[in-house]
Design a protein around this nucleic acid. Structure first.
Lengths: 114, 114
DNA sequence: ACTATAATTCGAAATATGTCGAACTATAGA
DNA sequence: TCTATAGTTCGACATATTTCGAATTATAGT
């Protein structure tokens, strides 16, 4: 038990909630695709897309797109940074690592209630 | 591009939706914990808990628990099987594998719209 | 200063989700 | 057959989510 890493159930469920909308998943997946095939993103291989580019193939209003980007950000899945008129978006590789580890069974739920 | 595996965005987002509720995540995580540390579940290592056991540390009504189990099932994350008075629940290792691969960047979104 | 482009904020509306209790079904055992 | 245990179905209700359009802010270029 003691050599497992633990995670906060609520925090992790919020990550999954952010990916539970098809439009947001598509955004995230596009950002994730910057990585080498078969490997997780590492801090020095991540690239970025600006908000407008991420909305290109999505058929949602700009206000909706903006809302989704913010949700992904609040969940800690992506980071943003202004670059002139654009806001650049990129994956947080550490968060991705945690999510991958969850499905590998190498971390366990930390019970936050009672 | 062609040596990537692809996934259906809507189907994958439904898996994440199933895990987006803290109670459901806890249920899933308990079932996932049957695996060897550091490895994914394989078909011959999965064990099971019955519905009642999964609700033990959850503080929800039986009807709510039943609802959550069904959601996990519909998303393809778990399977169930009656055993006397009990319904045994267990992880689908193949689904878990797909989710892990998604975060590894080794599969890409298959665009289902347009 | 004015204009165009990029993105956000706000308020509203439709729809989906989480939860419960009451009533019900299925099974095992006396 | 009667009873207890395990789980499900149904209907209701409160809350959350998704989405939009209109108005607004930020920046770069003229």
């Amino acid at each position: 038990m003691s050599n497992y890493r633990t995670f906060d159930t609520v925090e992790l469920s919020e990550s999954f909630k952010a990916l539970s909308n098809p439009n947001r998943l598509q955004i995230f997946s596009r950002l994730l695709s910057c990585c080498e095939p078969g490997t997780a993103c590492s801090a020095d291989t991540v690239s970025s897309f600006c908000v407008g580019e991420l909305g290109e193939d999505l058929a949602v209003a700009p206000s909706t797109l903006s809302h989704h980007i913010k949700e992904l950000q609040h969940a800690g899945l992506i980071k943003t940074q202004r670059n002139g008129k654009n806001i650049e978006c990129f994956i947080d590789p550490n968060k991705v690592k945690i999510l991958k580890e969850f499905f590998s069974g190498s971390i366990l739920a930390k019970d936050t209630e009672n």
